[in-house]
């Protein structure tokens, strides 16, 4: 009995409770302030920085018209479904070097646009541009 008390006194000359308090506060701070979200970015470059347009060659344009969130869009007046990867693949592999100009309706969601850009990019479209709303001839290159 006496042995136990003396060893415990030697082991804990000061109380551990203040240490735990401080560690808990540190833990709370790091738990609340740290974030685990992995942000990514899609670059939208202005036309002057677009490297793929060769001035000597007249670039070929494919107009992508995105009017609704239901997954349908038009490429050069042909209606496509975003799930229908085969038809899209056929079209894009026929014209991989075309500049895919994305015209979006004002009420389409940003998510829809980003998904469409992702899909086109995944199917091999090299150059995707987002047309400006008030001036459709002003293109912004989009590189996910």
């Amino acid at each position: 009995m006496q042995l136990i008390t003396t060893t415990s006194q030697r082991k804990n000359p000061i109380s551990l409770t203040p240490l735990i308090d401080v560690v808990f506060i540190l833990l709370l701070f790091f738990m609340l302030s740290s974030s685990f979200q992995k942000w990514r970015q899609v670059n939208i470059s202005a036309p002057t920085n677009s490297p793929t347009i060769i001035p000597s060659e007249k670039p070929e344009f494919a107009i992508v018209q995105l009017d609704s969130d239901d997954g349908r869009f038009r490429i050069d007046d042909t209606l496509f479904q975003i799930d229908d990867l085969e038809s899209l693949q056929t079209l894009i592999s026929a014209r991989p070097d075309a500049i895919y100009v994305l015209n979006t309706s004002p009420d389409v969601r940003v998510q829809t646009m980003v998904t469409l850009v992702d899909t086109l990019k995944a199917l091999g479209a090299k150059d995707i541009s987002l047309a400006s709303e008030e001036n459709p001839t002003e293109l912004n290159g989009v590189t996910p």
Partner: peptide, 13 residues
Amino acid sequence: PVATSPVATSPVA
């Protein structure tokens, strides 16, 4: 919303 939409597939027009 795009990926899940149950709209008819394949190019139409």
